[in-house]
Design a binder for these strands. Structure first.
Lengths: 193, 193, 193, 193
DNA sequence: CACTAAACGAGACGGTACGTCCCGTCTTGAA
DNA sequence: TTCAAGACGGGACGTACCGTCTCGTTTAGTG
C-alpha cells in the first residue's frame, strides 16, 4: 500500500490526515510524516504546494470512490439493479469513509468543497456510463418508445448524484426502499415493464 | 448598506473580500479593514473566529441569493413559469456574482464548501416552497392523476438544485432552452397540458 | 481594610495581585475587581495608568515595610540591638511577604525593580535614622574617638541595605549569627565596647 | 559586531532597543528588526519569549560591564588602586551607558529589575575576585594582623556594589574623592600603611 | 569499480496569519 | 454629577504553518 511511489504515498497520507483532522486542518508536516518522507520531497512532487495536494488528493479519492461503486455494480444485470446497487454501495462507502466518521458537519463540508472541481468531470463520466447502459437497454427494446437516451442519461445522472450527495430524508442503506425509489422516480418513465 | 450594525457590516465585508481574494485567501485583517472596524471587535462579534465567519457569511449570502430568486419569481403565474424564471434568474445571479468572477475553478470550489452545511436547509426550503406550488396546481386540477405531491416536490427540488449547481453543457441564460428543459424533463410527467 | 478610600483600596489590591501573579503579570482588570471598583474609576485615581500604579504601589509597600521594621525596633535600647533586631525583623517580613511566597527568582526580581526608584529615598531615610542613633550614642560617649558620624551612618546604611537585599550565604533569621555579624562587621570599628 | 551568530545579534539588539525605548517598552518586532532577522527566528533562539530575552540580555550586559571594569583595573598594582580605579571606571561606564542616558528614573528601575536575578552571581564573582586580591596582599604581609580574608572580601564586595548602585551624594567621577573614600572607609581597617 | 548526478532528509529562515490578551479611551445608562 | 458597565481601536504576544532555501548524505546510473 505504501510502496506505490511517492505520489501515491502522499495522496493516501493526505486522505488519512484529512480523515483525522479535517481538510483545512491538517498540516503538510503531518502529511509528510504520514507518508514517511520529508517536506522537501513533498514540494518536489507537488510544486503547487498545499493547493495542488488538496486538489489532487480529492480527485484521486473521488476516482477511488467511483471505481469501487463500478466494481460493486459490475455483476448486476438490469439498469434498475445497477442503479439500486450503485446507490446503496455508494451510500455505504460514504458512511464507512474514515473521512465521514467523527467529523462535524463543517468538516464534511470542507471536504465536499475540495471535491467540487471534479464534479463536472464526475458528471460527465457517470452520464457517459449511464448512456451506454441505456443504449444497451434500448437495443434490447426495453426503453419506452420516444425516450431520448441523451436526455435520460443526463436526468439519471442528476438524480443519482443528488440522492447520494443529499439523501435528505431517505435511508440509502435500505435496499428495498432505494429500489422502490429507483423504480418509481428514476426509471419509471424510461424503462418498460 | 454599512449602517446595519457590526455583524452585517462584517458579513458583507467578508463576502466582498471573498469575492476579491478567494475564500481561503482573505485575511481577517482585510475583512476588518473592509468593515471599518478593528480585528479585536471582529473577535468580539465572532468568538468562533475565522470558521464562524466563513460559515455565517456563506449561509447569509445563500439566503440573499434565494431571496432574490424568490423575488424574481413572485410575479410568475404557473409552475412552469416559476421554475423557468427561477432557474434563469439564479443562473444570472451566479454568473454576475462578484464571487464567481475572476475566480479559478479552485476558488469556486472553496466557496462551495462553505455553502455545503446549509445545503440540507436549502433543500428543505426549496422543497417546501415547491410543495406549496404543486398543491396549488393540484387543487386547480392541473396535475396528472396519481401524482404524489411529496415525491414530485422532492424530485423537482433535486433537478433545480442539480441544474443550477452543475449546468454541465446547458446554457441557463437561454430562457427558451431552459423552458424546454423544464417542460420536458421537470414537469413533463407531472403537469397536464 | 477596604474602607480606606479608593486610592488605598487600589494600592492594596495591586499589592495582592502582584503577590499572586507577579508584578508584570497582573492586569488592571484584576486590580479593579480586587478593589471592587471599575477600571474607569481606577483611571480617575491614577491618570498615569499602569506605570503610576506600579510606582505608587511599590513605594507604598516599601513604606509599610520600613514602618514595620521601625516599629519592631522601637523598644530596643542600643545601636547594636536595633541593627540586629531590625535586620532579623526585616528578613522575616521579606520571607513572610505574600509577594515573596510561591514566586520564582524572576518574580522577585520584577518586584525589586519597581522598588528601585524609591531606593535613594530609602537610603536617605535609613541614613538619617541611623545618624540620629549614632549622635545619641556619641552624646553618651559610646563612640570611638575620631568617628565621623556622617560617614559612619552612610556606611551602616549601605551594609544594612546590602545584607537585607542580598543575604548571599547568610541566614538572617538566626539572630545570634546576625548579632555576631553586626558586632564584628557593622559597629566593630565604631562603637566602643 | 553583528556577525557573532544570531544569539549575540539578538542580545545586542535588545540592549540597543532597551537603551532607546526602555526595558518594558521595546517590542520584539523592534528587536528582530534591529537584529536583522524575523520574529520567528527570534522565537527559535529564545523559546522562552520575551522573558528569556530580557533575562539573558540583562545578564549578558552585566557580564560585559564587569568585563570592562576588570580590564580597566588590570594594570593597577595595589588593592586600593584597583578599588579606586574600578569604582571610577564602573561609574563612568554606567554614566555613559546608552541605557542610562535619556531614561527616566522609572526606566532605570525596570532595567535594574531584570538585573536582579544575576545579582547573587555578581556578588559571588566580585567577592571571589576580591578574595584573591586580599590573599595576595596577605601573602605580601600588607594586611592587618587578625584580618579574616573571607569576611573582608564580603564586606568590600558589599561596599563596592552599594556605592556603584547608589552613589547617593557622592561624585564617583572624582577619582581623588573616591580614593579618599576607599582609603578611609573601605580598606582602612584592613590594609596596613 | 570508481565517479558523478540526481534525489533525499534535515532543518533554518522570512513571512503571514491566527487567536489571545491587555491597555487607554470613550460612550451610555443608572443612581 | 459621579460612577459602573462595557464597547472599541490599537498593539503586542506567542503559535502555527507555509514556501523557500541550503546543506550533507544516500542512492543510482555511467564510464
Amino acid at each position: 500500500m505504501t510502496g506505490d511511489g511517492p505520489r501515491e504515498r502522499i495522496l493516501a497520507a493526505a486522505v488519512r490526515c484529512a480523515a483525522r483532522n479535517g481538510v483545512q486542518r491538517f498540516s503538510l508536516e503531518d502529511v509528510a510524516n504520514e507518508a514517511d518522507l520529508s517536506r522537501a520531497t513533498f514540494y518536489r512532487q507537488f510544486p503547487g504546494g498545499r493547493d495542488q495536494l488538496v486538489q489532487e488528493a480529492a480527485t484521486w479519492e473521488v476516482a477511488r470512490f467511483w471505481a469501487k461503486v463500478a466494481e460493486g455494480v459490475e455483476a448486476e444485470a438490469t439498469l434498475e439493479d445497477r442503479l439500486t446497487v450503485g446507490i446503496v454501495t455508494g451510500a455505504e462507502l460514504i458512511r464507512q469513509s474514515p473521512i465521514m466518521a467523527n467529523l462535524g458537519e463543517d468538516e464534511v463540508a470542507e471536504l465536499a468543497t475540495a471535491l467540487r472541481p471534479s464534479e463536472p468531470l464526475v458528471h460527465e463520466v457517470i452520464r457517459s456510463y449511464l448512456r451506454n447502459l441505456l443504449a444497451r437497454e434500448d437495443r434490447a427494446g426495453r426503453l419506452r418508445p420516444g425516450t431520448d437516451v441523451a436526455e435520460a442519461s443526463d436526468y439519471l445522472t442528476r438524480m443519482v448524484l443528488s440522492v447520494l450527495s443529499a439523501p435528505v430524508g431517505r435511508d440509502l442503506t435500505d435496499e428495498a426502499a432505494v429500489r422502490e425509489l429507483v423504480r418509481t422516480q428514476f426509471v419509471g418513465g424510461i424503462v418498460t415493464g
